[in-house]
């Protein structure tokens, strides 16, 4: 089983890196395709964590809906490859420094997580049935609120997309 974890983890990280910085292509479409790969390998990690429902949602919503939305928009706007522009070296240096520090703080604090009390033999199964029961009992109010959020987003998008909006 461990081999799958390493496989999916490596895929996730490599594809994630290629989304951000692809040495071979500067086209946003490539980035979007690698984002799909990242999300799919994330779904694999979810399966390894026994979160089956979420893995399915990840594939359907993210890989299916969101990324398609990206591709549509990129192609709609007919964006070519990124122009090569001179980088602001000081800015790049500062960014690497800041992000490096962030990664250091995050990774180095992982070892200190005894307080979480991680179980040595996890038994939780993220099945559809379980999530469905929780969703319609304990989480019914957030569920309804989220639907309102989606409605508002939809209205907003329609409003923003009207051409004569000024």
């Amino acid at each position: 089983m461990d081999i799958f974890f390493y496989l999916f983890a490596a895929l996730t990280l490599i594809c994630g890196l290629l989304v951000v910085a692809n040495p071979f292509s500067r086209n946003p479409v490539t980035s979007a395709m690698f984002l799909v790969l990242t999300i799919l390998s994330m779904a694999g990690l979810f399966v390894l964590l026994n979160a089956f429902f979420l893995a399915a949602v990840q594939v359907i919503v993210y890989a299916g809906a969101v990324i398609v939305l990206y591709l549509f928009v990129i192609m709609l706007l007919d964006l070519g490859a990124d122009e090569r522009r001179r980088l602001n070296k000081a800015m790049v240096g500062l960014s690497f420094l800041g992000v490096g520090l962030l990664a250091f703080v995050l990774v180095s604090s992982i070892g200190q997580s005894e307080a979480v009390g991680a179980l040595s033999s996890p038994r939780l199964q993220g099945t559809t049935e379980k999530l469905g029961k929780a969703l319609f009992s304990d989480y019914v109010l957030p569920f309804e609120v989220v639907s309102v959020v989606l409605l508002v987003a939809m209205v907003g998008i329609i409003l923003l997309s009207k051409r004569d909006l000024k």
């Binding site: 800015m91 960014s95 800041g98 604090s109």
Partner: peptide, 21 residues
């Protein structure tokens, strides 16, 4: 915007440092 994002990152680092370390 990215400059501001960088400041945000730095601020988050500082806060995390105080909270976690």
């Amino acid at each position: 915007v990215q400059t501001y994002a960088l400041f945000l990152v730095v601020a988050v680092v500082v806060v995390l440092w105080f909270v976690l370390k």
